[in-house]
């Protein structure tokens, strides 16, 4: 039986252009053996969700440094669900105060990462938590 290749998306919602983390993460996922789609900066949640569906992504990683994550992250989850992407997991990172974590988990994010988390930690988390779906 063929094995699913993990497909992961790195996306930057909102208007901030601080893409250092996003680009480092994209390379890290490539080196971990995943097929990684990078959307570039300045995406709306709607655009990210539509792209994730077209690309049949297993996990969308959002990066935001502008403080607008309280709107942008939940909105991305909502859009994904509306487009039928119920099994697509969403994780987030960037400049996110710990006080906002619960609110983001409640909104459906599967993981939230603080600054200073290492790349191997993130990959380990993905390996443990994201299983490519073989439903059909």
């Amino acid at each position: 039986m063929a094995k699913r290749k993990l497909r992961i998306m790195v996306a930057k919602p909102g208007l901030d252009g601080h893409d250092r983390g996003a680009r480092v993460l994209a390379r890290c996922f490539r080196d971990a053996g995943y097929e990684t789609i990078y959307t570039g900066c300045h995406q709306t949640p709607e655009e990210i969700a539509a792209a994730a569906i077209q690309e049949d992504i297993d996990c969308v990683g959002l990066s935001c440094h502008s403080g607008a994550h309280r709107y942008l992250f939940p909105q991305t989850v909502k859009q994904l669900r509306e487009l039928g992407g119920d099994d697509i997991q969403v994780i987030g990172g960037g400049v996110i105060p710990t006080a906002d974590f619960q609110m983001l988990y409640d909104a459906g994010l599967k993981g939230v990462f603080t600054p200073g988390v290492t790349l191997p930690d993130i990959v380990k988390w993905i390996e443990e938590n994201i299983v490519p779906n073989i439903r059909d």
Partner: peptide, 27 residues
């Protein structure tokens, strides 16, 4: 590594919400 960065899509994201366009990246 068997991994890939599929980055061409970046240039086409403005069509993401257009139902008349379907974009798919392949490794």
């Amino acid at each position: 590594t068997g991994g890939a960065i599929l980055g061409d899509r970046i240039r086409m994201q403005r069509h993401a919400l257009d139902p008349g366009v379907f974009v798919r990246s392949l490794a």
